[in-house]
Design a binder for these strands. Sequence first.
DNA 1: CTTAGGCACTTGACCTATCAAGCGGGCTCT
DNA 2: AGAGCCCGCTTGATAGGTCAAGTGCCTAAG
Lengths: 244, 244
Amino acid sequence: MMSLESVPPKYAQLVQTIQRRIEAGTYAPGSLLPSENQLIQEFGVSRPTVVAALRVLREQGWIESQQGKGRFVRGRPALTSAEQPRLGQAYLTAPESTSPGEVMEAAALAAPNRIAALLGLAPKGKAFLRRRLVSRDGEPTELVSLWVPVEVSEGTDLTSAEPLPQGLRDHLQARKGVRFDHVVEQITARMPTAEETAQLGMPKNTPLLAVYGAVKDASGTALAVVEVLLPADRHELEDAYPIS
Amino acid sequence: MMSLESVPPKYAQLVQTIQRRIEAGTYAPGSLLPSENQLIQEFGVSRPTVVAALRVLREQGWIESQQGKGRFVRGRPALTSAEQPRLGQAYLTAPESTSPGEVMEAAALAAPNRIAALLGLAPKGKAFLRRRLVSRDGEPTELVSLWVPVEVSEGTDLTSAEPLPQGLRDHLQARKGVRFDHVVEQITARMPTAEETAQLGMPKNTPLLAVYGAVKDASGTALAVVEVLLPADRHELEDAYPIS
DNA sequence: CTTAGGCACTTGACCTATCAAGCGGGCTCT
DNA sequence: AGAGCCCGCTTGATAGGTCAAGTGCCTAAG
């Protein structure tokens, strides 16, 4: 009788075990980790297995090693690169249904200069716009616009007035076979238009924070642009990162 | 006679060699890399050495591997996490002499609420402020303020009206023995004060982009806050990152 | 008492193996 | 001719080693 469930490799199990012990305080930050030989004895595995696990832990920042002395516990690596997903990325992966809101617009129209430039379209080129007014605690707080070239929008559910049950990323990847590779994000600020002031219920003389996320494939071709407009009196962008 | 120059380990040499071949086109993107056995024969090393090199290359994104088929060339990995250093980090590491500017203020005073909160001080707590008006192309463009708790500022050259020849990071680490670990960055926008409008020569009704970078050590204690004020009509923040 | 040497323990680098698992082409049997 | 099996190639995981280099302690010699 064969077991159908695939067990993770031993070194990966060891990684998990040691991570749990560090989190539980069994291996306290700053203290010396058991040596390779001790771990070999305790877990009954060979040295390459132990070393493989410790290498993973070092690369992830849990421990650091010093030749001749041993390996020291650093603790749970707080920041890999960004604690929380960036704003642009968040709106790409999360389904629309996770944030309550109302679809304001869903149509093909001439893209503004900035959008056309990010998408690599000719000035005044046409793009498909899907704009949602997102609410938090019952109040409108953000205007999220998705711009895609018309040829990419064909055959998708972007025209629907209903929230997409699937994240945009999965939707486009499934329907169009494109692969998202990276995001180029621009952040700027400007004064809102009268229409934006009304839609967002903003006080007078408050600027808008504007985040533009251009989604590109591996070759650098732009596949979509996410535009997020945030009233600056109610929103901030926060990000944490380690120092090189 | 012993050679004093230390040679890099074999697997690291192999990594470099293969990287160069990928960049030179010898191993074209999409093509199949020579198999482990072929590399063993060509370079006269053992399998673990070859595997270690290929593991590094896979983790760095140069190649991908498929069990049963082989390893495929992907090409030079474009984005590791951020192409250019973040704004907050840039002002911490670069010496002031790299950006022309004028020291406007250098004194200890009661920190504004936001700064006090980021530094972990009591409201109205005192902090040392060093404010510079940075110019590009002869025109003032950015207001860069450095806030440090008074006890950290003691024994440093922060009071000098001259540009610091050393980066702030190196200066504080050398003088005070503190170690920078990570940065928490906040981005917001607001309307400028009359004084800021005058100093920066901003047009009417233009918002300010405000970037706050709180520098912390490994324990989370704030060591300094960098405040960068940018007129939104002339500046944008741009960042690129790979999709998870 | 001080210092230099030696030894034990650590990690780093490298080697020769074995077995499992995934893939693909060719051979054989129907 | 077609279908299925098998074998060889690939990577993945793991075991058992050796040698080198760095650290720290202890001891013995001055």
